[in-house]
Every structure is written in structure tokens, then in C-alpha cells.
Simulated assay, not measured.
Amino acid sequence: MSYSRENPEVSASGEDRVNAMRGYKATLSNPNTSKEAKEHAQDVLNNELGGNKPRQDLYDVRGRNKEPNRVAGGLKAAQTNPRVKEQGKKSSAEKLDQMPQE
């Protein structure tokens, strides 16, 4: 995959797009980056990478690929973990109740 000023190419892969977005955001926050480079990075983020949409796409894809038994196990573990706050324990119990039963 290449990202150049002459021919910007953005992969359709959600993960690749999120990684590209991270790189451009790093460019924006780097004090050693030129004004022109920051303008280019902002332009690519706004017009080619879809703002925060790639990140949401990635979360959606990862959520669909999770194994229900592992998710349920994590939620049960959170309820007994002494480092989890009461709000988190309550939230995990609610999510566990909403999961489809097999």
C-alpha cells in the first residue's frame, strides 16, 4: 500500500485505514513536522480516510468475529475481579444477561 501526494491509495481494509489514520494523526501532533505536511495530513484524514469512520468500521468487524463463549467468560470474570469497580461489575452483568443463550 502506498500513500503519496501524487497518487494516494487507501486500502479498503478497515485495519489498514485505521493504521493510516494513526500515522496522519501523529503527523499532526509532531512539533517537528512542517506546516505543509500537517495540512496534507489533515486533508487526507478529512477527505480520504473518512474521519473516524475507519475506526468504527474496525470495531464493528472485530465485534462480529468474537466467540460468544469467550465474551461470556470475560464478562463473568469481570464480575468477580476485585479490581473492577461496582459500576463495571453491574455493566458486565447486564451485558451477560443480554447475550443470546445457546
Rank of each mutant, 00 (worst) to 15 (best):
S34M: 04
K38F: 15
D16W: 12
R17C: 02
P8G: 07
K38S: 04
L28K: 10
N30F: 01
G14Q: 10
S29A: 13
R22H: 07
K25T: 06
S13E: 13
T27L: 12
S29E: 08
H40I: 11
S34A: 04
L28Q: 12
A41N: 02
N19P: 00
N19W: 04
N19A: 09
A12N: 14
S29V: 12
A20M: 14
E36M: 12
A26V: 10
N7S: 15
G23Y: 03
R22V: 08
A41C: 13
K38P: 06
Y24C: 03
V18T: 10
K35D: 12
A12L: 15
N32H: 11
A20I: 07
R17A: 07
T33I: 09
S34D: 08
M21L: 15
G23W: 02
S34W: 11
E36T: 07
A41T: 00
G14V: 08
A41Q: 04
A41S: 05
Q42P: 02
G14T: 07
Y24W: 15
S29T: 10
N30R: 02
Y24F: 14
K35I: 08
R17F: 03
R17Y: 00
K35G: 04
K25D: 04
M21W: 13
E36S: 12
N32E: 15
L28Y: 12
V10P: 01
N19H: 13
K38V: 06
S11R: 02
G14E: 11
N19C: 01
T27V: 10
L28V: 03
R17E: 01
E15L: 10
E39N: 05
K38H: 07
D16I: 03
M21I: 08
K25C: 02
D16Q: 08
V10M: 08
P8M: 09
Q42E: 15
N30G: 00
K38G: 05
H40W: 10
N19V: 03
D16A: 11
T27D: 05
E15C: 03
G14I: 04
N7T: 15
T33S: 05
G23V: 04
P8S: 10
K25M: 12
N32R: 15
S13W: 12
N7W: 09
L28W: 15
Y24I: 01
E15P: 01
K25R: 10
E39S: 08
A20W: 12
T33K: 11
S29L: 09
N32I: 01
A26C: 11
A20S: 14
R17G: 01
R22C: 07
R17D: 02
A41F: 15
S29G: 05
V18G: 02
G23P: 01
P8V: 09
L28R: 11
V10Y: 04
M21H: 06
P31V: 00
A41V: 03
T27S: 05
